[in-house]
Nucleic acid binder design. Structure first.
Lengths: 169, 169
DNA sequence: CAAGATTGAACGCTCAATCTTG
DNA sequence: CAAGATTGAGCGTTCAATCTTG
């Protein structure tokens, strides 16, 4: 049947269990976090954006930087930013030094919104993630995922999900 | 300090790093895996479904079982199953013992399809996840995520993303 | 021509009914 | 009435152009 010279190296039992646990646990976690945030009418991906802004110097960041930080395509970020702008939480501004660029700025209303939501979100993350882990487990989890993150970045396999990965033509 | 008795317990530096690494690493991983699968015209969530079927006895499972296994809402699974059915990879069958139920069955074409894709997907998972981790790290990751999975399940916070969570009076 | 960002259409998912059977 | 499953409308994301500036 399979005389190929690169016979697949199937996952052994331990690997299989780890991978499945990662998949299911991750999905459940995202569902749980999203559900808690939706009480305030936004999604995790939207929260992440204004969260990044609130931590940035002067509450502003370039679109492409944000896209990179939260791992969203530029297109998706544009649409999402439009939604957030409509709610009055962010503002678009032309970039000073690079006139191709656009900066997203957190408005006062946006600052208030995140100030209100952040404590609840942190509680949610603790509830659904950290409370189920021993401190060393959380650190180990973080280190493993940092290695994955850096590894994938280095491979260039998924630079930006956005565009411009392979030269077209 | 502040009068509230539930002053938010902010993440300390180590917790923050772990959580961010998890978020970003997880997104990058999903993007990378999805991209590899899309070469074959399907998404990770679709692959998971036929993968579960292929491992099940007689290649068939009930809709609600699948929804639970892959952590998708029943509604989403119905839509996705319709798509897979249109491609000829699965079939719907009424359930023998419970006439409310529906079973999803993998067709011959579906079996061939997954036989073809599985090796490549496994390679993809190794490439983007396991190759970046030491064996103990993978185990630790799996154990942590298993604890999260079980913890969330136990809390009942996100039983099924589908429906029927709280009694609707 | 590459990089930053946007646009609209197509597609997939969510949400709230709805239908059927236990 | 609860559980299993489906439906269609609405919404968010993806994908392939497009436009502008470096």
């Amino acid at each position: 049947m399979s005389a190929r010279d690169d016979e697949p190296q199937w996952l052994d039992d331990a690997e299989q269990r780890a991978w499945r646990a990662y998949l299911r646990g991750g999905r459940l976690l995202e569902v749980a976090l999203d559900r808690d945030l939706q009480a305030h009418g936004l999604q995790l991906s939207e929260y992440e954006i204004i969260s990044m802004l609130s931590e940035a110097k002067d509450d502003h960041l370039r679109m492409s930087e944000i896209a990179d930080l939260v791992v969203q395509s530029r297109s998706r970020l544009t649409h999402t930013a439009a939604r957030l702008e409509k709610r009055g939480w962010v503002l678009r501004q032309p970039c000073a030094d690079d006139r191709r660029g656009v900066e997203l700025v957190l408005t006062e209303a946006g600052q208030e919104a995140i100030a209100q939501m952040a404590p609840l979100h942190v509680k949610s993350v603790r509830n659904h993630l950290m409370d189920h882990l021993k401190p060393e487990q959380l650190i180990a989890l973080g280190e493993a995922m940092a290695a994955v993150r850096d590894g994938i970045r280095a491979t260039g396999t998924a630079g930006e999900p956005g565009q411009g990965l392979d030269s077209r033509d």
